[in-house]
Every structure is written in C-alpha cells, then in structure tokens.
C-alpha cells in the first residue's frame, strides 16, 4: 500500500498548570495517497490536536508519525517548518489571508519561504487559475467575497504541490451555497491532482462527501470507517 500518512500510537499530553491533559491517546491509522478523509468529533475530542500533529505544526508526545515516509516525531522546529512548506497545504475556517498583500502575493508566500524566485509568479498564477480566480490576481483580500477569499487560500495551499491538504472547517464561515462550491472545488482538485485531502469538520453533510470518516472521542480513535467504504467501493 502507498501510505501518505502512517500514525502509530500517537499520544499528546498537555500540561495545564498542575494537571496533565491527554488530548490524544494511542491513536493509530493510515491514510492512502489520494484519499479524501474527514476527521470528526465533538469539541474537546482531540480533533484539533490531531490536525495540528498531522499538519506538522506540533510534535506528538509519543508515538510515530510518518508523512511521506519521513519521520516527523523527532524533527526540530526548522525541519518541521521545511516539511510543512513542502508537504502540507493548510485551508483555514477564517481564510487567514494577509490583508496587506494582493491575492497573488498571498499565493506566492509559501514559495517565498521555499526560497523559490524564478518561476514563482507563474506557479502562483497557475494555482489561481486552478481555483478560477485568475482575473482577481491583483485584488486585496478586502476586495474579495468570502468564497473568493477561501479560493485564494486554497490556491495558496496547492501551490507548493503538497502531499496533503489539511482543511479545518473550510466552509464554516461561508453560506451553504458558497460552501458547496468550495467543497466541490476541493474534491475536483483532489481528483485532478491526486492530492490527499483531510477535512476536519462538524458538518455531517460535508463528511458524507468523503471516502472515510475518522471519529475521535476523548482523545481515543472511536471509529475508522475505512473498511466499510472500501467494501462499498468494491
């Protein structure tokens, strides 16, 4: 199997003053390259922690995490920054665009941190084209609608050709029609580019559109509906 993500016994413990909080307890699963997957769970179930860990924003306290066969668990801060830059594209609920920069400037940002200078602009234009916003290149975020801003954010996520896209409630700040468009854009990009898509969401309607749902409760992996979906496919 070509696993893009392998998680083995992930545990994450936070210290809140005197008390230790276990946000993740012995979570193990694999994700196949090109898969579309939803992470669900109520607040406090550890789903944000899992997303941060899978997105290489944070290291697990114990357990192994392999992204594209690279062991992330023992990396230092700069190595984490580098692997985020190359392998992970983030899409946030609140878009998180830099307000002073134009759309294309925002899309170029990850390439800048990759040290790319030559074809940076062309690649950013291609990414904007892929999300259908080529004609809004020089607009600043406040000149764009919510849906358009999220499209720019998606272009920023796909521009380094990452291995996975982490989308955290990508439609949470959008009305349902625009949300639908954004979802179908994400699914299309997955189909065309084969980039693994991981969506963290509360919304069962969104989760329904994925191939598999990972449910967390109290830091444990409650259910992993992989087998059922795979069987259904067959």
């Amino acid at each position: 199997m070509d696993w893009v993500i392998e998680a083995r016994g992930l545990t994450k413990t936070y210290k809140m003053g005197e008390i230790e909080v276990e946000a993740l307890r012995d979570v193990s699963f694999q994700i196949e390259r090109g898969e579309i997957l939803a992470i669900m769970g109520p607040s406090g179930s550890g789903k944000s922690t899992l997303m941060n860990t899978l997105g290489c924003l944070d290291r697990p306290t114990s357990g192994d995490y392999l992204l594209d066969s690279e062991a992330v668990s023992n990396m230092n801060d700069d190595q984490l920054a580098s692997i985020r830059n190359r392998k992970v594209g983030f899409v946030f609920q609140s878009f998180n665009l830099l307000p002073r920069m134009t759309a294309i400037g925002n899309v170029e940002l990850p390439l800048r941190y990759a040290g790319l200078t030559e074809d940076r602009r062309e690649r950013a234009i291609q990414a904007l084209e892929a999300v259908g916003l080529k004609d809004r290149m020089t607009h600043r975020p406040y000149e764009l609608s919510g849906g358009q801003q999220q499209r720019v954010a998606i272009a920023r996520a796909i521009v380094p050709n990452p291995s996975i896209i982490m989308a955290d409630e990508p439609t949470g700040n959008l009305d349902s029609k625009v949300g639908k468009d954004i979802m179908s854009l994400l699914l299309n990009l997955n189909r065309e580019r084969g980039t693994t898509l991981i969506i963290v969401t509360h919304d069962p309607v969104i989760a329904e559109q994925t191939q598999r749902i990972i449910r967390l409760r109290d830091g444990y992996l409650e259910s992993n509906s992989q087998e059922k979906k795979v069987k259904a496919k067959q």
Binding site: A81, L109, R156
Partner: peptide, 16 residues
C-alpha cells in the same frame, strides 16, 4: 500573532 502563526504554518522558519 495570527499572521506570524500563519507564516509559520506556511513554512517560515524562526530566522525568517
């Protein structure tokens, strides 16, 4: 702070 967090998520290292 959020901008810094975002830049880090996009791959900015400490020295950047």
């Amino acid at each position: 702070t959020r901008e810094i967090g975002l830049r880090k998520a996009l791959g900015a290292r400490k020295r950047d």
